[in-house]
Design a protein around this nucleic acid. Sequence first.
DNA 1: GTCTATAGCTTGATAGAC
DNA 2: GTCTATCAAGCTATAGAC
Lengths: 214, 214
Amino acid sequence: MSRSTQTTRERILDAAEKLFADRGFHGVSVREIAREAGVDVALVNYHCGRKSDLFETVFLRRAETLNSERLAMLKACRDAAAPAPPALEDIIDAFTHPLLNRSAHGGPGWKRYFALVAQVNNSPELAPIGMTKYFDPLVQEFIAALREALPEAAEEDIFWSYHFLSGALTLTFAETGRIDQLSGGVCRSSDLDSVHARLVPYTAAGFRRLCQPR
Amino acid sequence: MSRSTQTTRERILDAAEKLFADRGFHGVSVREIAREAGVDVALVNYHCGRKSDLFETVFLRRAETLNSERLAMLKACRDAAAPAPPALEDIIDAFTHPLLNRSAHGGPGWKRYFALVAQVNNSPELAPIGMTKYFDPLVQEFIAALREALPEAAEEDIFWSYHFLSGALTLTFAETGRIDQLSGGVCRSSDLDSVHARLVPYTAAGFRRLCQPR
DNA sequence: GTCTATAGCTTGATAGAC
DNA sequence: GTCTATCAAGCTATAGAC
């Protein structure tokens, strides 16, 4: 959608998404958002309410699309395997692929959104609100599938394994460029297809090591 | 060290560490830091310079202690294995144990420090400055050791494996309480000894899966 | 080292004209 | 829906008395 056909509200949300992703909730002023959107300051309030509401709107906006896509993929891999339990790699793929795929190929708005998710997930201030509210119901579905795929696993091991997956995934979203620097250019933060090809086997191996009898 | 025997400068640094860890660099004002430290606003500038200098000082303060401890552990496991290459699990342990151990048992200052590291590591704004400057030289040492332990690995696979470890580790530091909520209390964010017992085998299995010939 | 006082901005939010 | 104008509050940073 071209810039001129966007509604004012959408322009504000896109500008907010970009700036929040770069510097976090507190690092951005409403005035900056208005400037970035090419819109008067007063319109931010008019269309999106107070700053904290604006932040929540930005965070929620893309969550629903993502989550229904991930649930559909989970259901597909369950149905394909039934009556056997779904394969571990397929569950992890359903969890991660819709995200990494959109971050890689969905355009700059999606990319910025995931960078924002990375910050929220690691913030003691924001994670209990943002992540729990919009993502945890979905995560519970995935945990249930993981239980089926790893029937001998202890509950704790499944949850901690999921936690490690979540950390690896969200740091990837942050695209801080650190791995580029560290590897001298061998790896590129933005090359999410390469990441995905590695994240699934890496975490699947971790899950198996923790969750299967030794 | 009791509160009364701390220098003013130390009180300011501790207060800043706490508040920055909770709400990030931009989420905290110098005045709040002064109030938390029980000190006049002007003293913050006098002892610690401008706000950005204060942040850097807080970030740097504990990094050196940590890094020399980690290097010593790395050297120890190398020496013990020589002339064979060090064991993968031992390298990961040298990388993670000094951190998780201090976060778990080093007192509240250390705990807050690591929560701050988690936020910086996931921030496009701060990671290129903070992490690269204070942690990457050490990381290069560990990468070298990993190369020895996984002689058949491609460079990219080692770096991406390290990246996943970094994400899993730093999300753990954030202690957002999300895993507590998600697991209905089965896991506790603050139980870092449990995490450590799982993080090492989980990531070692991931490294092997990616870095060894199929 | 510590405090008071203040300069000079920027902030979030809104009231009211059009 | 959009804009101008404005408020009260908070901000960083420092100068200068003690």
